[in-house]
């Protein structure tokens, strides 16, 4: 199998879907002539032309709203946010229009749009450029939310998201863009709403999403090495729909749970998962569900401090030990 990067996986997914369906169009700031701020769409303008790969002005509310309108009439726009953080400029278009249009029309209209871009901190770009709004997005019925943590999932989930008839917010990670792995050539899909068990274990379930769950694999190595603790590591991949079954089955087996994610703790995905576990698997728990998030403040700029604010292999490792106390 070819080894490709997360970035190339996204490009492959979008390219395959553009070739498959004439209604798919990629739009965003700098996606065409500039080849993408993070080079996700590199070479796509040359290959697919300006009808399919469209540079927009810096007008998130305008062009995302325009994409929503075009989706109502049958296009399948993939809208790149240069940073996902800029979603807030288009908040009304996303959460009032894309999320509600099906409902308010009594099911007469649907909105097959994908909003994608990097949603992560850790690159010293400060608070305005480091938002991780997956729980804010998933709060809204009508919206689907996907957060792939590796190249394989990025490709399979992107293809599923583009084919989905509901609006999907697809949150990537600039730090993962260059990460490589074996990815099959050609067509495959990863369904939304299906978690992946990255590692099986019996003493503790470490559940999470995004880059933090990749770190958790290394934390699990340490737990094994130093304490002979066997941690199960589960990557949700998709936040809404949510794979409750995989979460609950794991917790029922290990009796302990730790949720890891980059978002801030208040009303985070981990808070939701903790509530679900306590509601549906309370009797199986040997300890409170623990959560490990970024330290609760706006994203700090200072390089060494930002590393400390975010989840890290060590912070996850320590949190796991506390769960096992």
């Amino acid at each position: 199998m070819p080894v490709i990067s997360y970035r190339e996986a996204l490009r492959a997914a979008m390219s395959e879907e553009i070739e498959r369906d004439p209604n798919v169009v990629l739009m965003g700031e700098e996606v065409a002539q500039f080849n993408g701020a993070y080079k996700i769409s590199e070479g796509m303008l040359e290959k697919y032309g300006p009808k399919r790969i469209v540079d927009t002005p810096i007008s998130e509310a305008g062009f995302i709203g325009m994409g929503v309108g075009a989706a109502m009439l049958g296009l399948r726009p993939v809208m790149e946010l240069m940073f996902f953080s800029f979603y807030s400029v288009a908040f009304d278009q996303i959460f009032n229009n894309a999320a509600n249009i099906r409902y308010m029309s009594g099911g007469l209209i649907n909105c097959p749009i994908v909003l994608r871009g990097p949603a992560n901190g850790g690159t010293n770009v400060g608070a305005t450029h480091s938002h991780t709004p997956e729980s804010i997005a998933a709060y809204h019925p009508g919206i689907k939310v996907v957060v792939p943590s590796n190249a394989y999932d990025a490709k399979g989930l992107m293809k599923s998201a583009i084919r989905d008839n509901d609006p999907v917010m697809f949150m990537e990670n600039t730090i993962l863009y260059g990460e490589t792995m074996e990815v099959p050539d050609g067509e495959y899909l990863v369904p939304l709403g299906k978690a992946s068990v990255l590692r099986e274990g019996k003493d503790l379930s470490i559940i999470g999403h995004g880059r933090a769950i990749q770190m958790a694999l290394k934390s699990a190595d340490l737990l094994k090495e130093k304490h002979n603790i066997s941690a199960e590591v589960i990557d949700l991949r998709s936040i809404r729909p949510l794979d409750e079954e995989t979460i609950l089955n794991s917790v029922k087996k290990t009796n302990r749970a730790l949720y890891v994610e980059e978002s801030k703790p208040f009303c985070s995905v981990g808070a939701m998962v903790a509530a679900i576990i306590s509601d549906k698997a309370f009797d199986y728990l040997d300890a409170p569900v623990k959560r490990l998030n970024s330290i609760d403040a706006p994203a700090i700029y200072s390089m060494p401090l930002e590393k400390l604010q975010l989840p890290s292999v060590d912070r996850i490792y320590q949190a796991a030990l506390e769960t096992l106390k």
Partner: peptide, 27 residues
């Protein structure tokens, strides 16, 4: 709403429907 009659709403946020209308034209 009545998309079968090319009628796309009916929108409650002042001005919020204008990007959608632009998107209909785009499509």
């Amino acid at each position: 709403f009545d998309p079968s009659r090319n009628f796309w709403g009916g929108h409650g946020i002042v001005g919020g429907q204008i990007p959608l209308g632009t998107g209909l034209a785009y499509a």
